[in-house]
Amino acid sequence: MDHANSTTADWEALTQILGHHTNWPEHWHTTLAQHGQAALLQQASHDLATGVRSSGDEHTPIQPTRQVSA
Results as ranks from 00 to 15, higher is better:
residue 27 H to L: 13
residue 57 D to Y: 00
residue 1 M to N: 14
residue 63 Q to F: 11
residue 58 E to H: 12
residue 62 I to A: 01
residue 62 I to M: 12
residue 13 A to W: 03
residue 68 V to C: 05
residue 56 G to F: 01
residue 7 T to H: 07
residue 51 G to H: 13
residue 10 D to N: 05
residue 22 T to W: 00
residue 56 G to R: 05
residue 14 L to A: 06
residue 50 T to H: 10
residue 35 H to A: 08
residue 60 T to F: 01
residue 31 T to D: 05
residue 3 H to V: 15
residue 17 I to Q: 12
residue 3 H to Y: 13
residue 64 P to Y: 02
residue 18 L to K: 09
residue 40 L to M: 07
residue 59 H to I: 05
residue 56 G to D: 01
residue 34 Q to I: 07
residue 21 H to P: 04
residue 33 A to P: 03
residue 40 L to G: 02
residue 3 H to N: 14
residue 70 A to F: 05
residue 43 Q to M: 08
residue 67 Q to Y: 09
residue 25 P to Q: 05
residue 1 M to Q: 07
residue 46 H to I: 12
residue 20 H to Q: 12
residue 55 S to T: 15
residue 56 G to N: 03
residue 63 Q to V: 14
residue 40 L to D: 03
residue 33 A to F: 09
residue 41 L to H: 09
residue 57 D to F: 00
residue 14 L to N: 14
residue 4 A to S: 14
residue 17 I to E: 14
residue 34 Q to P: 08
residue 22 T to F: 00
residue 10 D to M: 11
residue 28 W to A: 00
residue 41 L to A: 06
residue 52 V to I: 14
residue 22 T to K: 02
residue 53 R to D: 02
residue 16 Q to M: 07
residue 33 A to N: 12
residue 45 S to C: 09
residue 19 G to M: 06
residue 65 T to Y: 10
residue 32 L to N: 09
residue 27 H to P: 01
residue 35 H to V: 04
residue 14 L to E: 04
residue 16 Q to N: 06
residue 37 Q to D: 02
residue 43 Q to K: 11
residue 7 T to Q: 15
residue 51 G to S: 06
residue 68 V to M: 07
residue 40 L to K: 03
residue 29 H to M: 07
residue 29 H to L: 05
residue 6 S to K: 00
residue 23 N to A: 02
residue 6 S to M: 03
residue 64 P to H: 06
residue 29 H to P: 10
residue 16 Q to R: 14
residue 46 H to K: 13
residue 2 D to L: 11
residue 22 T to L: 01
residue 11 W to E: 11
residue 12 E to Q: 13
residue 50 T to S: 12
residue 15 T to R: 04
residue 54 S to R: 01
residue 10 D to G: 11
residue 61 P to C: 02
residue 25 P to G: 14
residue 13 A to V: 12
residue 57 D to L: 01
residue 12 E to H: 14
residue 36 G to F: 12
residue 7 T to S: 08
residue 52 V to N: 11
residue 42 Q to C: 07
residue 39 A to I: 03
residue 23 N to P: 00
residue 55 S to D: 14
residue 50 T to E: 12
residue 58 E to Q: 03
residue 60 T to A: 05
residue 40 L to C: 08
residue 52 V to T: 15
residue 17 I to G: 12
residue 34 Q to G: 13
residue 52 V to W: 04
residue 35 H to M: 15
residue 50 T to F: 07
residue 29 H to T: 05
residue 4 A to I: 07
residue 17 I to K: 11
residue 58 E to D: 05
residue 10 D to H: 14
residue 38 A to H: 10
residue 60 T to R: 03
residue 15 T to N: 15
residue 1 M to Y: 08
residue 23 N to L: 03
residue 67 Q to M: 05
residue 28 W to F: 08
residue 67 Q to F: 13
residue 33 A to R: 15
residue 56 G to A: 15
residue 7 T to F: 09
residue 19 G to P: 03
residue 26 E to P: 04
residue 8 T to M: 10
residue 66 R to M: 09
residue 16 Q to V: 09
residue 6 S to Y: 02
residue 59 H to K: 07
residue 17 I to P: 04
residue 47 D to G: 01
residue 6 S to D: 04
residue 39 A to T: 15
residue 37 Q to I: 06
residue 67 Q to P: 01
residue 66 R to T: 10
residue 45 S to V: 11
residue 31 T to Y: 02
residue 7 T to G: 07
residue 13 A to T: 05
residue 66 R to Y: 04
residue 37 Q to H: 02
residue 47 D to T: 01
residue 38 A to N: 13
residue 3 H to R: 04
residue 15 T to Y: 03
residue 38 A to G: 04
residue 61 P to S: 00
